[in-house]
């Protein structure tokens, strides 16, 4: 375990000196928390705005508001729209970190001395994976905490945020997505030679989440707890498959002799 810890420490010491990585880790969660809070604030201070939003609530969503007042239902709807941002966060941050961490080893030719130590491939992968997943998950949870505190301060009912729907999204789907991000970054990194190319290519994995986001905004689908559970189950299967492929590609001999 000590070697895994040392890998994580080294990764953080190195990766967080990169401004782009720092920006991604700090800025994205800030946006994710600030956007819904800003819209809630507007809704509270402008009755017209709240009324406009109220008119846009899809028929299906109203079913979820059965015990809520009209204003609470509007708030619940607004916050629900942003749940997908909290799913993109744990995906985007690990992808950025892992792309720089793995391709960085490759471009600086630091992998060979590292692999010459008694570290096992599992320790190396777990260390690198943890170094990428932990900041993504913690940043998401912190952003969620900021959202909850900010919403409470604005008088939004906590039922809207502290319900199974959000809990599964933030505490189950979040870490699963972070794992997806790292696996994809490892797979892409084994072929790419430039961290930005790897990061940009890996970011394509956020497309399905964005599609769901836009479908919800367009009123085509309604994300509820059932859909979030379904996403979690699909992700579990996808993660197992991706991790298997990532570990297969991350063979010592492949890394040293075929990574170009």
């Amino acid at each position: 375990m000590n070697r895994v810890y040392q890998i994580v420490r080294k990764e953080w010491a190195e990766v967080f000196k990169n401004r782009l990585v720092l920006f991604t880790v700090a800025f994205l969660p800030l946006i994710a928390a600030a956007l819904p809070l800003g819209i809630l604030y507007l809704g509270r201070s402008s009755a017209d705005f709240a009324a406009d939003v109220g008119k846009d609530i899809p028929q299906g969503f109203s079913v979820l508001c059965n015990n809520l007042t009209g204003e609470e239902c509007v708030q619940y709807f607004v916050i629900s729209q942003f749940i997908l941002l909290f799913m993109i966060l744990p995906l985007a941050i690990p992808i950025t970190i892992a792309s720089y961490s793995i391709i960085g080893e490759k471009t600086r030719r630091t992998l060979e001395p590292l692999l010459a130590t008694p570290i096992t491939t599992a320790e190396l992968l777990i260390g690198k994976g943890a170094a990428a997943v932990i900041p993504g998950v913690i940043a998401t949870w912190l952003a969620y905490l900021v959202l909850v505190i900010g919403a409470a301060w604005m008088g939004v009912g906590m039922d809207s945020l502290l319900n199974p729907f959000w809990s599964i999204a933030v505490f189950v789907v979040g870490p699963l997505l972070a794992l997806t991000g790292v696996s994809v970054a490892v797979i892409i990194s084994s072929r790419a030679t430039d961290p930005r190319t790897a990061e940009q290519t890996s970011m394509l994995v956020t497309l399905p989440i964005l599609l769901v986001f836009f479908a919800q905004v367009a009123g085509l689908i309604l994300i509820d707890a059932q859909i979030v559970i379904l996403i979690a189950l699909v992700l579990m299967a996808v993660d197992v498959a991706l991790l298997t492929v990532a570990v297969q590609l991350f063979q010592r001999e492949n890394i040293l002799t075929r990574w170009k």
Binding site: N2, R3, Q6, R9, K10, A13, E14, K17, N18, R108, R109, T110, L111, E112, P113, L114, A116, T117, P118, I119
Partner: peptide, 24 residues
């Protein structure tokens, strides 16, 4: 190794202590 393969952003001391920990 053929290339020194050092971590440029880390100090000389941190580079060595990282490997010292890996070697136990």
């Amino acid at each position: 190794t053929e290339a020194p393969g050092l971590y440029d952003r880390l100090s000389a001391e941190r580079n060595l202590s990282f490997f010292a920990h890996l070697y136990g």
